[in-house]
Simulated scan of single mutants.
Amino acid sequence: MLKNYNQKFQQTLNNTLQNIYPLILIDAYLRLIKITLLNPNGFFTQIFHIHQNFSTFNHLCTQYLTILELLTLLFFGYLLTQNLSNFQHSDLNFSTVLILAVACMNIGPDLRMTWTLPSILLVIIISYLVAYLFCKVPWPTIRIILAFFVGYIVNLIQQNDIFVKLPGISTSARNINWWSLGPLVMLRNLATWLGIINPFTETRQSINSPAATANLSAALTHRNLNNLPFPFNLHSIYTSYAFLGGIGCTLGLVFALLILHKDRLVLQNILLSLFGFNAPLLIKLPVLFNLWLVIPFVISPILSMLIGALFIQLKWAQPAVYEIFSGTPTFLLNFLGTNGNWGSLIATILAIGCSTAIYLPFIKAEAKYENKNLD
Rank of each mutant, 00 (worst) to 15 (best):
G151Y: 07
F230K: 03
L306W: 09
T96K: 07
L65Y: 03
H49L: 07
P109T: 06
L257C: 14
I126V: 15
G308S: 04
D110F: 04
I26H: 06
I196C: 07
N155F: 07
F57T: 14
P296R: 00
L336Y: 13
S209H: 06
F44H: 05
N226A: 13
T66Y: 04
M113F: 07
P231Y: 01
S344C: 02
W342R: 05
R264T: 14
P280N: 03
F163K: 09
V102E: 00
L216W: 05
I295P: 08
S344V: 05
I259D: 09
I352E: 05
L258F: 12
W316L: 15
N86L: 11
R204T: 11
Q18L: 09
L333I: 14
D110L: 04
S55R: 11
L187K: 14
H261V: 01
F57N: 05
C135N: 14
A320C: 06
M105G: 01
N198P: 01
H222T: 13
F149M: 12
L181Q: 03
F148P: 05
L32K: 10
Y369Q: 08
K34L: 12
C104P: 06
T81R: 10
A131K: 02
Y152D: 05
F277W: 09
V123I: 13
P229Q: 04
A147K: 09
N83D: 13
I107C: 00
N19L: 14
L291K: 15
S217M: 10
Q205F: 11
S209L: 03
R204L: 12
N19I: 12
G343P: 01
G77I: 04
P140Q: 10
I197Q: 10
I352T: 08
G276M: 03
H235Q: 11
C249R: 00
Y238P: 01
T56V: 13
R264V: 12
E366W: 14
L225K: 00
L70D: 02
Q46C: 11
I157C: 09
S95F: 02
N106P: 00
F94H: 09
T203V: 15
Y128L: 15
S55V: 12
L79D: 06
L181I: 08
E370R: 12
N373K: 13
I349D: 00
L68T: 05
P280D: 00
C104L: 02
L13W: 03
F87T: 14
N290R: 01
I302A: 10
G337W: 02
R174F: 12
A191P: 11
A103E: 05
L216N: 08
N334C: 10
A147N: 08
I207W: 01
L360D: 03
F243D: 04
T330A: 00
I295A: 13
V185F: 02
T213I: 15
I162M: 07
I35F: 07
Q46V: 15
L265W: 01
L23C: 09
V254Q: 05
N53E: 07
S119W: 03
V164R: 11
Q318T: 11
V164E: 06
K136G: 04
P231S: 02
L70K: 02
F163V: 09
L194F: 11
L220Q: 14
L166D: 03
L32H: 13
L274F: 15
T62A: 09
I50A: 08
L251V: 08
N189I: 01
V123P: 09
R174G: 00
N15D: 08
W292F: 15
A28H: 01
A279S: 15
P167H: 04
P109W: 00
F362P: 08
I197N: 07
